[in-house]
Amino acid sequence: MQVLFLIWIITGVIAANDDDPSCEGLTGDALELCRDAGDVGTAIGVGLVIGLWAAVDIILGVTYGIYILSRRRQP
């Protein structure tokens, strides 16, 4: 599961580094602003994936803990 989230983040960052077709034809400050906006969007996306990753880890951890506690032998 961890590898899937890591691959998701890496591919998202790599895809964001490709030239954005919406920035074509822009020059100077407009081009820089367009690229910076894309970087902000990438950061927000990566942050959301990391938040989802943490939530899934917590849910799976609690579920596993409950499972282990329910399988314990009672004295």
Rank of each mutant, 00 (worst) to 15 (best):
A15F: 02
A16L: 06
A16D: 03
A16P: 01
A16M: 07
A16K: 01
N17Q: 13
D18C: 09
D18I: 05
D18Y: 03
D18P: 00
D18N: 03
D19H: 11
D19I: 08
D19S: 14
D20M: 06
D20I: 04
D20G: 00
P21A: 12
P21Y: 06
S22Y: 02
S22D: 01
C23W: 01
C23D: 01
E24Y: 08
G25K: 01
G25D: 01
G25L: 04
G25P: 00
L26V: 02
L26E: 11
T27S: 12
G28W: 07
G28C: 06
G28H: 10
G28E: 12
D29W: 05
D29L: 07
D29P: 02
D29A: 14
D29N: 09
L31D: 01
L31P: 00
L31H: 05
L31E: 00
E32C: 06
L33A: 15
L33Q: 15
C34A: 13
C34D: 10
A37L: 09
G38I: 02
G38C: 11
G38L: 05
G38D: 00
G38K: 11
D39K: 11
D39N: 12
V40G: 04
V40F: 05
T42M: 13
T42D: 08
A43V: 03
I44N: 09
I44M: 15
G45E: 09
V46H: 01
V46P: 04
V46W: 00
G47Q: 03
G47L: 05
L48D: 07
L48A: 14
L48E: 11
V49C: 03
V49K: 03
I50K: 12
I50H: 06
I50M: 15
I50A: 15
G51T: 13
G51N: 05
G51P: 08
G51A: 14
L52V: 08
L52C: 07
W53S: 03
W53H: 14
W53Q: 06
W53E: 06
A54M: 15
A55H: 00
A55F: 02
V56G: 06
V56T: 11
D57W: 08
D57T: 08
D57L: 10
I58K: 09
I58W: 05
I58F: 08
I59V: 15
I59P: 05
L60H: 06
T63V: 10
T63F: 09
T63S: 14
T63M: 11
Y64H: 10
Y64R: 12
Y64A: 12
Y64I: 12
Y64D: 08
Y64M: 08
G65F: 09
G65Q: 08
I66G: 04
Y67N: 08
I68W: 10
L69P: 02
L69H: 03
S70M: 04
R71N: 13
R72H: 00
